[in-house]
Simulated scan of single mutants.
Amino acid sequence: MAGSNISRDHIAMEAMKVLMEKTVSNNLTLKNRIRQFFGLNHKTYTAFDEKMIAKLSYEMADAMIAQREKIREEKL
């Protein structure tokens, strides 16, 4: 990664943000769905697998770094 100031951890963090946005699910009971519909206060619960998201994030970061290195080699 010589010449780059973007670290593996930074890339993984950005990937993690995207994965969390895409995988978080809101579970609303019927009562809370009705409350949400009428604009009343309601409770939401989020659920995601932190370990899996972290693993996938670093796999994505590694793939992005490998691609970046491949492009650099092709330019030489």
Results as ranks from 00 to 15, higher is better:
M1Y: 13
A2I: 12
G3M: 03
S4V: 04
N5I: 03
N5F: 11
N5G: 14
R8A: 01
D9H: 07
D9W: 01
D9I: 00
D9G: 01
H10Y: 14
A12Q: 04
A12K: 05
M13I: 00
E14K: 11
E14R: 13
A15S: 13
M16L: 06
M16Q: 13
K17I: 04
V18T: 11
L19C: 02
L19G: 05
M20A: 04
M20P: 00
E21L: 09
K22T: 09
T23F: 03
S25E: 14
N26E: 13
N27S: 12
N27D: 13
L28M: 09
L30Y: 08
K31F: 13
K31E: 14
N32F: 05
N32S: 06
N32G: 01
N32H: 14
N32T: 05
R33P: 00
I34G: 05
Q36D: 06
F37D: 07
F38N: 01
G39V: 02
G39Q: 09
G39A: 01
N41L: 02
N41H: 07
H42Y: 15
H42G: 00
H42W: 12
K43M: 03
Y45F: 09
A47F: 10
A47K: 15
A47M: 04
A47E: 13
D49G: 02
D49A: 05
K51C: 00
K51Y: 07
M52T: 15
I53M: 14
A54V: 04
K55W: 14
K55F: 11
K55A: 09
K55P: 00
L56G: 03
L56C: 05
L56E: 15
S57F: 07
E59G: 03
E59F: 06
D62A: 02
A63D: 12
A63T: 11
A63R: 12
I65H: 03
A66W: 08
A66I: 04
Q67K: 15
R68S: 10
R68T: 01
E69R: 07
E69Q: 12
I71Y: 12
R72I: 01
E73P: 00
E73F: 03
E73S: 12
K75L: 12
K75V: 04
L76Y: 11
